[in-house]
Computed example of a mutant assay.
Amino acid sequence: MTTVGMVTGAGRGMGLACAERLTDTVDTLLLVDRDEATVTAAAKDLSARGRRAVVEPFVLDITDVAGLARLAVRVGEIGTLRAVAHAAGISPTMADWRRIFTVDLVGTARLAEALRPLATAGTAMVCFASMAPLLGGTAPDPAVDTVLDDPLNERFLERINDALGPAVEDTGVAYSWAKRGVHRFVQREAVRIGPLGARICSVSPGLIDTPQGRQESDSHPGMQVLLEQTPLGREGRPEDVAAAVAFLLSAEAGFLTGIDLLVDGGVCAAVRGRPLG
């Protein structure tokens, strides 16, 4: 049996770090990214390291339904789907609110839908969320959550606009709600695929030193305040998040599904709680 792994957003940052961790855990590893030059270079570099996996680039925009179908076909041609690290996503400075919801939430749901027929005993998936909705601003609202829970509805963007009102045009607000949607999606998907013996979790990175993270920090001075409040006193590294993802995808996490793992150096605890003593 040939085992297949997949990392989306694999060209750089946390996606690439996840790919590096998975090269010794599967027989074939698909690196998925919309940037052909970047993902091809990443695949070539990882292949040259002499690890277990055959590394193959796959150029894809995660919102492309036809492309996702081709991706699923390719996985089926190779073997059995074992591990998926879905790191592809965009942050508030990268697009408008519509694109943020489309990539970060709708794209996640579309990927899971495309891969669901391939899920079997031992398949595990980790979706990247964020600490953003855990820091406030997305208090539970049944009306909004009802919309978030139906991201593949053809009127999704119209409905979320109606539910959130003008605030949705703030890309930071949109990002937080989109990532809340990812948290909720993972919980529901765990129930869908659990009877197959498959698992799904999410991971919520904090302040991580990546090109995308630096772009956000440069645009939002408040990020420095969060860094100063981080109990471990530093930004995270892509490798910190990749280690958590690798654990969630491993057999050692075989009884974990439908949960979110916060990888933030303690900043959410510091912001939401008070020091003792």
Rank of each mutant, 00 (worst) to 15 (best):
V4M: 05
G5V: 04
V7I: 10
A10E: 07
G13P: 04
G13M: 06
M14A: 00
C18N: 06
L22E: 03
T23C: 13
D27I: 12
L31K: 05
V32N: 02
E36M: 11
A37S: 15
T38Q: 15
A42I: 10
A42H: 07
A43I: 10
K44P: 01
S47F: 11
S47E: 14
A48Q: 15
A48V: 11
R49K: 15
R51T: 14
V54G: 09
V54K: 15
E56R: 14
V59R: 11
T63I: 11
V65M: 03
V65Y: 00
V65L: 09
R70W: 07
L71M: 11
A72P: 07
A72D: 09
V73C: 09
R74A: 12
E77G: 13
R82F: 09
A83K: 05
A83C: 13
H86D: 12
H86Y: 11
A87N: 12
A88G: 10
A88E: 04
G89S: 09
G89Y: 00
I90R: 11
P92Y: 08
P92F: 09
W97T: 11
R98E: 12
I100Y: 11
F101V: 03
L105T: 02
V106R: 04
G107K: 06
G107I: 02
A114E: 12
L115Q: 06
R116D: 12
A124W: 03
M125S: 10
V126N: 01
V126M: 06
V126H: 00
S130P: 12
M131A: 09
A132H: 05
T138R: 00
A139D: 14
P140I: 06
P140K: 08
D141H: 13
V147H: 06
D149N: 14
P151C: 12
L152C: 08
F156L: 08
L157K: 03
L157G: 04
R159E: 11
A163P: 03
L164Y: 10
A167Q: 14
V168L: 01
E169K: 14
T171M: 06
G172I: 05
V173M: 06
V173E: 01
A174D: 00
A174G: 05
Y175E: 06
K179G: 05
K179N: 11
R180L: 15
G181D: 02
V182D: 03
H183W: 08
R184S: 07
R184A: 10
V186H: 08
Q187F: 07
Q187Y: 09
V191L: 15
R192W: 12
I193N: 04
P195Q: 13
P195L: 14
G197H: 14
C201W: 02
S202I: 00
S204M: 03
G206W: 00
L207K: 08
I208N: 01
D209Q: 07
D209V: 02
T210L: 02
P211Q: 08
Q212K: 05
Q215C: 04
P221L: 13
M223D: 06
L226Y: 06
Q229K: 15
T230H: 05
P231D: 11
E235M: 15
E235P: 00
E239K: 05
V241W: 01
A242N: 09
A242V: 09
A244E: 10
V245A: 05
V245D: 02
F247H: 03
T257R: 02
T257P: 01
L261S: 07
D264P: 03
V267P: 01
G273A: 12
R274A: 14
P275I: 11
L276N: 03
G277M: 10
G277D: 13
